[in-house]
């Protein structure tokens, strides 16, 4: 059953995959960060990716957002299709990125006001109407569990917020793109447990609006949220399946079970 999950359209509904990754390899110079990964992610699912450090999880997300263009050292091979379009053939890479929201583990509050941080993406796509911007800013900050803390100082600099606040600001900014694909990379590292739970609840709600890839270093977080989960290790995707199966069902590779049960290394 694991192998069936691996490729092609969703076996149940036969809809084409939201994201179709075929034989993806990523190199930094001669160093392989990811090798021959193929997987499908369905519309409106939360797809978890777990695995120890240096497994290639972050590199995988970077490839989807075409961040290899920022790093002449990073080379990708294989194909990634979003909505059936090969992202490497997309002429308008800015359009592609604007549909994908990303949140990386190191929060980046831009040196703009809190308000302008969240209003940036709407403004980039040409929105000027103040009232509309206000609505978007409040909605995104609320969803990122930050609104209550900053609603009285929307003018203060986003880059001077605390680390945890900047992380939620980054999430709010990603949401302000109204993305169809949201990619979160270990977002809870800089956030306290209570806030983490609040954001997790929001992610469950967001699922109806977008597809979410959740890279997490907490296997229990994947278990709580992800419909399906992939296990990456040393640049390879060793297992992929319905999340609960990784914990209790049949696994393709014994190391997957060892990892989720914390018997690793």
């Amino acid at each position: 059953m694991v192998s069936q999950e691996n490729a092609g359209p969703d076996p149940q509904t036969n809809t084409p995959a939201k994201l179709h990754v075929d034989d993806l390899s990523i190199h930094y110079g001669s160093h392989a960060a990811l090798e021959h990964v193929s997987l499908d992610i369905q519309e409106n699912e939360i797809f978890g990716i777990i695995g120890p450090a240096n497994a290639g999880k972050t590199s995988f997300l970077k490839a989807i957002n075409r961040m290899d263009m920022f790093d002449p050292n990073m080379k990708t091979r294989g194909s990634i299709q979003l909505n059936g379009h090969n992202i490497r053939k997309v002429r308008n890479v800015y359009g592609l990125r604007s549909r994908i929201g990303v949140v990386f583990p190191l929060p980046v509050g831009l040196p703009l006001s809190v308000y302008d941080n969240v209003a940036l993406a709407p403004r980039l796509r040409g929105l000027k109407d103040k009232a509309e911007l206000n609505v978007i800013v409040e909605r995104c900050l609320t969803r990122a569990a930050l609104w209550d803390e900053v609603k009285d100082r929307l003018d203060s600099l986003g880059s001077l917020l605390s680390g945890g606040q900047q992380q939620r600001l980054t999430i709010a900014r990603a949401l302000s793109q109204e993305p169809e694909l949201l990619m979160l990379d270990e977002f809870s590292i800089a956030v306290d447990p209570v806030t983490t739970m609040r954001i997790e609840d929001v992610l469950k709600e967001l699922k109806s609006e977008m597809t979410i890839i959740l890279v997490t270093n907490l296997v229990q977080q994947a278990r709580r949220l992800a419909d399906r989960t992939a296990f990456f290790l040393e640049g390879k995707c060793l297992d992929i399946g319905v999340t609960e199966d990784l914990f209790t069902g049949e696994v393709k590779d014994q190391r997957t079970r060892d990892y989720v049960e914390g018997r690793f290394g």
Partner: peptide, 25 residues
């Protein structure tokens, strides 16, 4: 650099990033 990348990641062009983030700073 992180500011530029954060901005590019949202789909901003180089020029949009320069005008809104880099130049003012």
């Amino acid at each position: 650099m992180a500011f530029r990348e954060a901005c590019w990641n949202m789909g901003a062009t180089r020029w949009q990033t320069i005008r809104r983030i880099v130049l003012p700073n």
